[in-house]
Simulated assay, not measured.
Amino acid sequence: MINFVKIILIFSLMASPCNSLELYGKFAQGGLITGKVDKKIDLYVDNKKIKISDKGYFVFGIPRDQTNEIVIVTKKNKKEIKKLIKKIQIRKFKIQRIDGLPKRKVSPTAEDMKKIRSEGKLISKAKNINSNLNYFFDSFIRPAKGITTGVYGSQRILNGKPRRPHYGIDIAAPKGTSVLSSNSGRVILSERNLFFTGGTVIIDHGHGLISIYSHLEKTFVKKNQLVKKGEIIATVGSTGRSTGPHLDFRLYCNNVPVDPDLVISLN
């Protein structure tokens, strides 16, 4: 069991304090790392250049199945300054069986697949947005009151058939329960009836970090609308592939699904 504690790692890269690197988060499977660095520094994580804001803020996610150490390199004028190697905490994920789903929601028809592919393009576009918003560096809150009935990373077996892992947390609550924006940002998708996720809202928090709210009964926001952290954006429902009222809440960082519980626990 992971101890959900905020970890602050501050590494001195050079004698000058302006070249320090700050890292916040849990280096574990599904973790989200935010940080700050001198904006004149280039930052690479596993050889991938990380976007840095005009104030020096950045963010990156750790995949569910990451087992190798993460290599963090800072450079200035293309010259390496410092290399950090971080071990990843390996987690043991649950197996969750869900029965009683409509057959079409587990084994879609050919006609259903047309709708699914069309909707998949919308969601894929949202997952690949990389805006200059800086809300990602702010803390996240739990978006609804209720009992957690599904956790991140669990292997799903639907109507007896193995499916992909669950990449969010499920919060069970009565229909009509308020759903809050977990952080400030811009709405990039607001749909009432997607095949799998039903009523769905996606919010961009900047630098590739988005939040997804699914199975909603009602939605109160529109695409391109700016919302504040804690603002009511929808109500809990049981739309899409669902066996009862609940909110499926997910976070993606540059298309990497990260664990909302790990992120919220940093508060």
Rank of each mutant, 00 (worst) to 15 (best):
R163E: 00
F136K: 10
K83G: 05
I202A: 01
S214V: 04
K76Y: 11
S182D: 05
E119V: 01
K121R: 04
F136R: 11
T243G: 04
L189S: 00
M113E: 15
K103V: 13
L247I: 04
V187W: 02
G31A: 09
S265V: 12
K75C: 10
G198V: 01
Y252V: 10
S178P: 03
G56R: 03
N224Q: 12
D38I: 10
V71L: 08
P165E: 13
P108V: 06
A28V: 15
P245D: 09
D170W: 00
L180H: 04
S16F: 14
H215E: 04
G208Y: 02
V221E: 06
S238T: 12
G240Q: 03
V236Y: 03
G244A: 01
P63H: 08
V201W: 06
Q155V: 05
Y167D: 02
V236T: 06
V106M: 07
T243C: 00
D112P: 00
L266V: 12
S184C: 11
S16D: 15
N3E: 12
Y167Q: 03
M113D: 10
S265R: 11
H246S: 00
N183A: 02
K145I: 14
S124A: 09
V258S: 06
I264Y: 13
V73P: 00
S182A: 15
L180R: 07
P143C: 02
E119M: 02
A110Y: 03
S242P: 10
T243I: 13
D99M: 05
K228F: 05
K39Y: 15
I90E: 11
I33A: 12
R91D: 12
H205F: 15
F137C: 12
C253K: 09
P108Q: 06
L23I: 01
L43N: 08
A144L: 01
G120M: 11
